[in-house]
Design a protein around this nucleic acid. Structure first.
Lengths: 141, 141
DNA sequence: TTTAAATACTACCTAAAGGTAGAATTAATC
DNA sequence: GATTAATTCTACCTTTAGGTAGTATTTAAA
């Protein structure tokens, strides 16, 4: 029960980039090094972050990546959506296709009520926390 | 961000078994059928549930599985531990090995504070809910 | 204009999760 | 005692996530 490592990498990357406010853009070699992420895997993730519209890439020599969206506008939830790691509203903790929620009592799954509460706390956290929010001085990435 | 399907199967199996109070024991063929779990995969899980001490197996003709532990004594958390799906106390949402929690501010990861709250809600749910608790009339498995 | 340093694309490799197959073992019933 | 219905063991197959390799493309600097 945890986020995929791809999602975790992505969050750390964006959070680190947000911390470097003074820098115009930053390249993959540096990111891979400071964040201890395999270079080739990181570039794959970067391309997805560009395609998702969070970043722009500057190609060629002296190139790199920079924010397209404001870091305050990028919520953790948005990142999880890109990497298929978000908790769907209707998602049931015990599986798919047999829990029909509160409508009909018969169709509730065994953990339905307990999960509803936890799910809301998690979703709230992911939907309300932006990259800017989680990027404070003194944190480790 | 969800439980492994193995864990979900295991919870559903135990929950279904707990519902059949009058039945002494129940066999794999029936379980696989009513729960729509591939028979061969189910038997693999059953063996793990036996080895974990939740169930006993009755081998040979007319055999099957029965509870060894009381269903009220089997917490969801215990099941998740068996299938390496539990949330560790120290587990950080952004990865392993770089978030040292509240001790030193410098070592907190970017989502530390937000995750702490959610983690506690989840852990509480998993640690306090027993198989008996989640096995109520009118629920779908 | 060449070179070097960067991203992008395509294809593949590896490990783990999910799932399957078949034979061995066990024990009640005929 | 033979048969049958059950669990168990060992080994393998398939899919997906995580990761790697190599080449093409882009562009600033020399």
């Amino acid at each position: 029960m945890q986020l995929s490592s791809t999602s975790r990498y992505a969050i750390r990357i964006l959070s680190y980039m947000a911390k470097q406010k003074d820098t115009q853009h930053i390249n993959a070699t540096v990111l891979a090094e400071v964040l201890s992420i395999p270079y080739k895997f990181l570039t794959k993730i970067m391309t997805e972050l560009v395609n998702a519209g969070f970043l722009i890439s500057i190609r060629g020599r002296e190139g790199g990546y920079a924010f397209l969206k404001e870091s305050s506008e990028i919520k953790i939830h948005d990142i999880l959506v890109v990497f298929n790691d978000a908790i769907e509203d209707k998602q049931c903790v015990l599986g798919i296709g047999f829990c029909k929620g509160n409508d009909i009592k018969e169709k509730k799954c065994a953990l339905h009520d307990q999960w509803e509460d936890s799910k809301e706390v998690l979703q709230k956290m992911f939907k309300e926390s932006s990259i800017e929010d989680i990027t404070k001085e003194g944190i480790k990435l």
